[in-house]
């Protein structure tokens, strides 16, 4: 039982990273129906920003986190403006290929500029282990969980309570009707990209602290896993993405704990396919009625 709880705690820390990434995927998909393949690379840029600002200016964790969020938010908006906005009316598969192109661009641009080698993330928070009812929790895990949950609550407030949040939901439901109500959908989409990218940047800094190593290709696999998490939770649904992230993270850790770590990716995809077959729109997704 202790082992199970221990792994659950580990799974929740990893899951909260996936959840932060999945939120970005789900918001962008909800609003412009684009699988933003470059999202995982924004998370990588967040981690690299944290690495450089901590090593160069010796700032503390919170400055690194907040500045990484600002930088990735701007980056997300710039990418949206340059690469996706011209394709708003193009076939969706074209936008998808462009997103893949942006992803290649960021990965290889970073490899070219800073080298493809793996580097150690500066450990600005001294590692402590707390023992609680026989379960070991490191202070970094607590930090990751608290930061992610805090960010998710802030996001929920932004989406539910602010004017921009209402506009976001309106554009997601019906862009044309939203425009008629005086909402500038370009601003809203740009804001959505900024918000999602900021969360990815935060996740990048947190994963740097947790795993202690970063490289330009680090965003690819977590990006795909986070997208899977968003689909499992019901794409377009914000609570769904959070739940999906925790489910995928916990599942992965538990599979690893029972000694099947070679099959952990397969397990994630099997759960994905099973959920899609049983609940084609994910756990919390709304199913649209088919109209003839």
């Amino acid at each position: 039982m202790d082992v199970f709880l221990q792994q659950l705690v580990n799974g929740l820390s990893l899951g909260s990273i996936y959840a932060l990434l999945a939120l970005g995927y789900t918001m962008v998909y909800g609003i412009i129906k684009l699988i933003n393949f470059a999202h995982g690379d924004i998370y990588m840029i967040g981690a690299f920003w944290g690495y450089y600002i901590i090593n160069t200016y010796h700032v503390d964790f919170f400055v690194a986190l907040v500045s990484a969020m600002v930088v990735t938010a701007i980056l997300g908006m710039v990418i949206e403006f340059l690469a996706y906005r011209p394709l708003r009316k193009a076939p969706r598969i074209t936008a998808l290929i462009t997103a893949i192109g942006v992803s290649y661009f960021l990965e290889n641009g970073m490899s070219l500029l800073f080298g493809a080698n793996t580097r150690d993330f500066p450990q600005i928070i001294t590692h402590k282990t707390l023992t609680f009812m026989g379960i070991e929790i490191s202070n970094i895990q607590v930090l990751i969980l608290c930061t992610s949950i805090f960010l998710m609550i802030v996001l929920q407030i932004i989406v539910k309570k602010t004017k921009m949040g209402i506009a976001m939901r309106a554009v997601a439901i019906d862009p044309d009707a939203a425009e008629l109500m005086g909402i500038n959908s370009n601003h809203v989409i740009s804001f959505t990209f900024g918000l999602g990218s900021a969360l990815a940047g935060a996740a990048g800094v947190l994963i740097g602290l947790y795993y202690n190593s970063i490289d330009p290709m680090m965003g690819m696999v977590p990006g795909i896993k986070a997208f899977v998490a968003a689909v499992v939770g019901g794409i377009g649904s914000i609570p769904g993405a959070a739940i999906g992230g925790f489910v995928i993270g916990t599942l992965e850790t538990l599979i690893q704990a029972v000694g099947l770590s070679a099959y952990k990716d397969a397990a994630v995809y099997i759960v994905l396919i099973l959920i899609l077959i049983v609940l084609p729109t994910g756990l919390l997704g709304k199913s649209a009625k088919e109209k003839v």
Binding site: A83, L87, A90, T94, A95, I97, T98, I100, G101, V102, Y104, F105, E107, N108, G109, S111, L112, A116
Partner: peptide, 15 residues
Amino acid sequence: ALRMLIYAVILILIM
């Protein structure tokens, strides 16, 4: 690494 960068740019421009 420049190869993939050029490839990415060509891809985005064609799209």
